[in-house]
Amino acid sequence: MSGDIAIRVRGLEKSYKELKVLRGVDFDVASGSIFALLGSNGAGKTTVVNILCTLLKADAGTASVGGFDVAKQAADVRESISLTGQFAAVDEILSGRENLVMVAQLRHLKNPDAVADELLERFTLTEAAARKVSTYSGGMRRRLDIAMSLIGNPPVIFLDEPTTGLDPQARLEVWRTVKELTERGTTVLLTTQDLDEAEHLAERIAILHDGRIIVNGTLAELKQLLPPAKVEYVEKLPTLEDVFLTIVGDGGNGSDVGTASAALTSEEQR
């Protein structure tokens, strides 16, 4: 599988009335890898995910998931993906177990009960299985949410801000789960505004800003965007946070390299 492209996005555009959210987004995600889409609030991360999950139609451009076109072969795309949305996509009134069984049934699996039991075990939810989800903590809810996304082993999983609102411990749990996923060969597209998260999890990171991907590379490549001179004068390697803030610019308009280097010099002088 590795070496194949699981997600291919070309020239994606989307506007909400006057507001141009995406202005030509391009990126590829290799099969079996974790890809992080990084951006500030309102950068359009969720819009990209929703288009790839066939929940939204793009105004222009093409996108394919698992080799299927999201606009023309939406049904095939839905067979190969799973979405863990920004808001925990669980049914609060049902129990954890009922949630899992329901999704297994909707995925038309043969043995929904066994599937549910196995996932409850794997996500240490067995004890809470019979309780209404509305009584769950934020971390348990997210675990259940991700467990529901794994049912049927879809080859591509979208995680839209999977750790937003979680405490550090729950966040580490989610990270562990995501890493396990790729060990099984699942492709993960993750959106986050948490730079630490991208740094820990992703093999490739793309920064979405002003409706375009302005940087796309491995963490090492992103760090190289800053001149190595920095290492000589500052006794601190640039973190991804530095890279992000420098490239994006705090005014929200510095998307060219000129501003990036200007910001860097001012940083050096401090």
């Binding site: 929940l55 839905r78 996509a89 999704v103």
Partner: peptide
């Protein structure tokens, strides 16, 4: 308006 509908709609149902 809940997340679960997005899940349903992104599933092959």
């Amino acid at each position: 308006n809940s997340g679960i509908f997005d899940r349903f709609h992104s599933m092959p149902i």
